[in-house]
Amino acid sequence: MTATTSFNHRHLLALEQLTRDEIHYILDQADIYAAHANAGRLKHSVLNGTLVAQLFFENSTRTRSSFGLAARRLGADTLDFSPSSSSISKGESFIDTAQNLVAMGAKVLVVRHSVPGTPQLLTQYTDASVVNAGDGAHEHPTQALLDLMTIRQRKGRIEGLTVALVGDILHSRVARSNIWALRKLGARVILCGPPTLVSDRWTTLGCEVRHHLDAILPEVDVVNVLRIQFERQRSALFPSVAEYFELYGMTQRRIEMGRDDLLLLAPGPINRGVELTPEVADGPNSAILDQVTNGLAVRMAVLGLVQGHAAAPLEF
């Protein structure tokens, strides 16, 4: 946890591509920004005058505002691009759109897209740094980083913990990024959901696959409850929401089946009553709002690092 390796990438596309030390380094940087914030130092100057453009080709509320705020906290100018108010509806390709934003001076492109690999594709067409803010079912690196930051905060470590990812693994970019990062950092990862959403093939990523949530609850330190991605469901992969909730919904009863210090994460937006009950979401085991807070610090760290800037050290 005291990794000193620096981060030498111009882009953040996928946690699959990062080393354990690089992931720890980003988390350490995020911890520094969080500590600054706790000490009342909210504004930084590492990206003064830098233009950060956000290209969100898919809906988002918290990731988008989190990145935007992170950029401004670092002193950057931000430019927000949304397809509804854009040329995409006039048929312009996303590559043209990105190139136009770079022509306006954008040095960092924060990209969300429904198609896997799209941020990586953009790196071939622009000189700007590309930060993946979620590409289809592929990866969502900053979400996984903020999950890890939260786990590290609450548990003091990642290595040796057992983390369960529950729900729609198949369609989840959050799951994939979490799996890469957790495995690299030495956690045991259990994937839990119906076989239509978690096939045995997932064991190739070094995970265990289980289908009965009740059976795994006593052995886990952390449960990360993934959202059912209704927008990505191609065909009925489970019979009904009611049946899903019955089998995988995080209820107070299930919280009580787990360890006392069971840590509950959810990437949001949560479907209350589908993945978890309101009392669980707002209960003492839940770190859902910490995740949001940490997301800001993680994104500040990432935006700085892809431009070659580390956080200012804390003064004691």
């Binding site: 896997p116 590409d135 592929h138 990866e139 096939s199 093939r201 997932w202 190739t204 191609r234």
Partner: peptide
């Protein structure tokens, strides 16, 4: 469909 599609999040 295979190990690679699973990793890449592609159908």
């Amino acid at each position: 469909e295979g190990d690679v599609s699973l990793r890449l999040g592609l159908i």
